[in-house]
Structures are given as C-alpha cells and as structure tokens.
C-alpha cells in the first residue's frame, strides 16, 4: 500500500466514522436507492400434497411437447432492442 492510498483510507474511515457518529450517514445511505421489497409469501414450497394441475393423474403424456410451447409468449414481447443486445453480449 503506497502512502497516498494509506492517507486516503485513513481519511475515508475517519470520515465514515464522523458521518456515522454525527448521524448524518443516513443522508449518504439515501443515495443508494431501495428499489423493491420481496414478500414472505414466497416461502414454503415443501408440501406433501399431490399436485393439483389438470394434468395430474391423466395418462395424456407430455402436453409440453406441443409445438407452440417452443416459442416464448409472455411479456418478453414488450422488450425491444434485442438485436442490439445480442451484439453486445
């Protein structure tokens, strides 16, 4: 670690401590925006029931092999600029 860096770290931590101790760090924290929460109803997938789908118990196999399934058909249609993005990847 060179001297410049050491001085910088000292002032950064001293500064962070000062911000924290004077309780103004909340201002700094607000610069990092909280975007979205994620609720508790996601929890709890382990169950002991047999699945309820219409296909449960039917002998008709592999409905998922129907041809239309191969094409994504959701809100991805609302996302544009895909060709540019392909090039970027």
């Amino acid at each position: 670690m060179n001297k410049l860096n050491a001085a910088l770290l000292t002032s950064a931590i001293t500064g962070a401590l000062a911000l924290g101790l004077t309780a103004t760090s909340a201002q700094a924290a607000e610069k990092v925006k909280m975007e979205k929460c994620y609720g508790i109803s996601k929890a709890g997938k382990n169950d002991c029931q047999t699945a309820t789908s219409a296909c449960a118990g039917t002998a008709k196999k592999d409905a998922q092999k129907d041809a239309w399934i191969f094409i994504p058909a959701g809100t991805c249609e609302k996302i544009v600029g895909g060709q540019l993005a392909s090039a970027k990847k």
């Binding site: 996601k42 592999d62 998922q64 239309w68 399934i69 191969f70 094409i71 994504p72 959701g74």
Partner: peptide
Amino acid sequence: AVYPVTERLVGDGFFRYAAA
C-alpha cells in the same frame, strides 16, 4: 416460485417446457 419474473417473460407454456 423462485422465478416468477422469468416465467412471466416467457409465458406459462414455454416455462413448463424449459422446466421439463
């Protein structure tokens, strides 16, 4: 349950196909 947005993006049918 883990990937609801992924599912919404591709639709139920495609998601099932991917899952299978």
